[in-house]
Simulated scan of single mutants.
Amino acid sequence: MPITTTKLTRWAGLSAVAAGLLFIGVQINHPHLDAGFATTTEYTVRQTLKVLMSGLSLAGITGMYLRQVKQAGVLGLVGYLVFAAGYLIMTSVEVIGAVVLPTLARTDPGYVNDVFAMVLGEQVNGDIGLFPVLNIASALTFLGGGLLFGIALFRAKVLARWAAALLAIGSVATLAIPLLPQVNERLFALPTGVALVGLGYSLWSGLRTRAALPLSGTVGPAAAPEAVK
């Protein structure tokens, strides 16, 4: 089976859809993060899915950007680079959470509880090294990149504009988490997840429809050589 740009882009669309569904799915009935939970099988499964989600998201937004390089302009490039950096940092954090924290939870549960407290915006009592810096970098690039990339996609008018707007709005909405302590913060992940599904489907279906259409400007049978004067 030949590998073409169209096929790769359509696979990127499916990757975005899968990433959005995973992003929503891992939030459902998520237990409280602590050292005890980090030693369970459920934690390992959820972290593995988060790593997969991050990788699929990166593939998805790459396909979105390449589909509309010209239309997205400089804002699209900046938004993509910042958003991609956010997903790369997120991937590294989730990998650490999947392969390092479960072991530390058994030998140094206080450290793990402090790491989770940082993630949840709670008080950190011990020294967790440069984790706070990594957490801030992840938040800034993910939220800032989502906002810029969403605006660029909306202006490009290539993919579903409602999904692009939802991506931008969802990124900004997460800033309200500290102001709404009574609201489950995991609900703020839903707009981004839905936006990824919408944009991914738009990317996939748009190319699918385009491939099914007949070529424009099709002409009839070529004239015989002798008929040409």
Rank of each mutant, 00 (worst) to 15 (best):
R10E: 14
A164C: 06
A105T: 07
R186N: 14
L56R: 06
R186H: 15
G36C: 02
G206A: 07
R67L: 13
H30W: 05
K229N: 09
P102D: 07
R208L: 12
L167P: 04
G55S: 08
R67W: 07
L120F: 04
L153E: 11
Y87F: 12
I24C: 06
V183D: 05
M64F: 11
W204R: 00
D127P: 02
R161D: 04
Y87M: 09
N29V: 09
Y87R: 09
N29S: 15
G63D: 14
V45H: 08
V158Q: 06
I28F: 11
T62M: 04
L77N: 01
L52P: 03
G220E: 12
P225G: 11
P191F: 05
P214K: 12
A85E: 02
G86D: 01
L81Y: 12
L199P: 04
F149T: 07
L66C: 01
M53T: 13
A223H: 14
R46A: 02
L101S: 03
T218S: 15
G76T: 08
N135S: 12
L77Q: 05
L52F: 12
A195N: 01
L207C: 02
Q123D: 14
V100M: 02
L22V: 06
D34C: 06
T218Y: 07
L166F: 02
V172G: 03
L75R: 08
L175I: 08
L203H: 05
G206L: 01
V112F: 10
P31Y: 02
L166P: 04
T174F: 06
P2M: 06
G63Q: 13
L22M: 12
V82M: 11
D114M: 10
Y80W: 15
L196N: 04
M1K: 10
V194M: 05
S138D: 10
G97D: 07
L143W: 14
G170N: 00
F37W: 13
I89L: 13
I177A: 08
I128G: 12
V194Y: 01
E226K: 10
W204K: 01
Q123T: 15
L147D: 07
N135Y: 08
A189Q: 09
T107P: 07
K7G: 11
A160F: 07
